[in-house]
Amino acid sequence: MNLHPDHAAPEPGAPSPESRCGSPTGNGPASYQHLAALVRGICPDAPSPGIDGPQRIAALLEDTAWNCEPAIRAGLAAVLARLAQPAGQPMDALPSDLSWPRLWREVEAHDDFLRLRDVESNLRHAEVGAFPFDRHDWEHAREEECALREHHRQVRETSYAPAQPAVFRVH
Rank of each mutant, 00 (worst) to 15 (best):
residue 43 C to K: 04
residue 31 S to C: 08
residue 84 A to V: 05
residue 89 Q to T: 12
residue 79 V to I: 15
residue 132 P to I: 04
residue 111 D to I: 01
residue 21 C to W: 06
residue 106 E to V: 05
residue 5 P to N: 14
residue 149 R to I: 02
residue 22 G to Y: 03
residue 44 P to K: 10
residue 93 A to M: 06
residue 89 Q to P: 01
residue 80 L to G: 02
residue 73 R to H: 13
residue 170 V to D: 04
residue 119 V to Q: 08
residue 76 L to K: 02
residue 101 P to E: 04
residue 6 D to N: 14
residue 165 P to M: 05
residue 75 G to L: 03
residue 66 W to S: 06
residue 160 Y to W: 02
residue 141 A to Y: 05
residue 39 V to T: 12
residue 48 S to R: 12
residue 47 P to R: 15
residue 144 E to K: 14
residue 103 L to E: 00
residue 120 E to W: 01
residue 55 Q to G: 12
residue 82 R to T: 14
residue 2 N to C: 14
residue 91 M to N: 02
residue 84 A to M: 09
residue 32 Y to S: 13
residue 14 A to R: 11
residue 33 Q to H: 13
residue 167 V to A: 07
residue 146 C to M: 11
residue 75 G to A: 05
residue 56 R to L: 14
residue 129 G to M: 02
residue 141 A to F: 09
residue 76 L to P: 00
residue 110 H to R: 04
residue 156 R to P: 00
residue 111 D to H: 05
residue 26 G to E: 03
residue 64 T to V: 15
residue 157 E to D: 10
residue 12 P to H: 07
residue 58 A to S: 15
residue 74 A to G: 14
residue 132 P to H: 07
residue 92 D to Q: 10
residue 89 Q to M: 09
residue 87 A to T: 13
residue 3 L to M: 14
residue 51 I to S: 08
residue 51 I to F: 11
residue 164 Q to K: 12
residue 18 E to S: 13
residue 160 Y to H: 05
residue 91 M to L: 10
residue 67 N to A: 12
residue 5 P to I: 11
residue 136 H to R: 10
residue 104 W to I: 00
residue 142 R to S: 04
residue 5 P to T: 12
residue 70 P to F: 10
residue 66 W to M: 13
residue 148 L to V: 03
residue 11 E to R: 15
residue 137 D to C: 08
residue 163 A to Q: 13
residue 1 M to E: 03
residue 75 G to C: 08
